[in-house]
């Protein structure tokens, strides 16, 4: 009987902690968003974050997209050739990249690179009292640290995904024309004839949402970290794990909303 009570108490405690965490995260997100639109603004910090999150993530996102497009073309060929449907490869590559793989893979890569860096930076600032110091210097840390990173993440991800889309399609094109013997003209015609504006736009919408998730989880976990180096490490891990899972979950939700109206 005691065991049962203890088990229920443990479950109850875990549920209460989870609800409290969701509440805390929601308030943090709302506060961050409201600080994004209210002055004072810090354009220099937004630009710096754009460089950190966007520009410096470009190589890893570009390589990921390029190789993904190449692998996709190769795999599609080996699969579709069984059904004499090789002509569909161009459409499969471009639709997969623009609708799904571009935003999701870019999101996961940026989460691992920039999201982790955000959590580590803010976490270190927290445990070394730098965030408290901001408050004593008439500066709201949410406005100074969180809002610019959130805004930069929301702006940077769609730009990265647009570049990833182009490179992913280019990767597929290279494999199809150089290795599989497709005609360049035919491949390009097949690529663009089946591509609609909403395919690209839906990917960019996903990217903006994923950018918000990366910024939010990086800032949230870093901002509330405690306990020295170990706490900063834990915050960094939590930021990457949480944002990766949320990106995948939100990808499903957005696909449902955008394509099954």
């Amino acid at each position: 009987m005691n065991f049962l009570v203890e088990a229920i108490a443990a479950i109850g405690s875990a549920v209460l902690k989870a609800v409290a965490l969701i509440g805390e995260l929601t308030l943090f997100a709302l506060s961050g968003l409201s600080h994004m639109v209210r002055p004072p603004y810090y354009p220099r910090l937004v630009l710096r974050s754009l460089m950190e999150i966007g520009f410096f993530s470009l190589p890893v996102v570009a390589l990921t997209a390029l190789f993904t497009g190449m692998v996709l073309a190769l795999q599609s060929y080996t699969g579709f050739s069984r059904f004499d449907a090789e002509s569909a490869i161009a459409s499969v590559v471009v639709l997969s990249i623009t609708r799904e793989l571009g935003p999701v893979l870019a999101g996961l890569m940026v989460s691992g690179r920039a999201g982790a860096a955000m959590a580590a930076e803010l976490g270190t600032m927290r445990v070394t009292d730098q965030i408290d110091a901001l408050s004593t210097l008439s500066t709201d840390p949410m406005k100074y640290l969180v809002a610019p990173r959130l805004l930069a993440s929301i702006i940077a991800l769609p730009i990265l995904v647009a570049i990833a889309d182009i490179l992913g399609v280019m990767g597929g094109f290279l494999v199809a024309t150089e290795k599989l013997g497709f005609s360049a003209d035919t491949y390009l015609i097949n690529t663009f004839s089946n591509l609609r504006v909403e395919d690209v736009v839906s990917g960019l919408i996903k990217a903006a949402v994923f950018g918000f998730i990366i910024g939010l989880m990086g800032c949230f976990n870093g901002y509330r970290s405690k306990g020295g180096a170990q706490g900063v490490g834990a915050a960094t891990t939590s930021a990457v794990v949480a944002s990766s899972i949320l990106i995948l979950a939100m990808d499903y939700a957005l696909t449902q909303v955008l394509f099954f109206k």
Binding site: D129, Q130, D132, A133, T136
Partner: peptide
């Protein structure tokens, strides 16, 4: 209020 933190807390 001006504050001097224990470890400096410089940015």
């Amino acid at each position: 209020i001006g504050m001097l933190f224990q470890n400096g807390a410089l940015f």
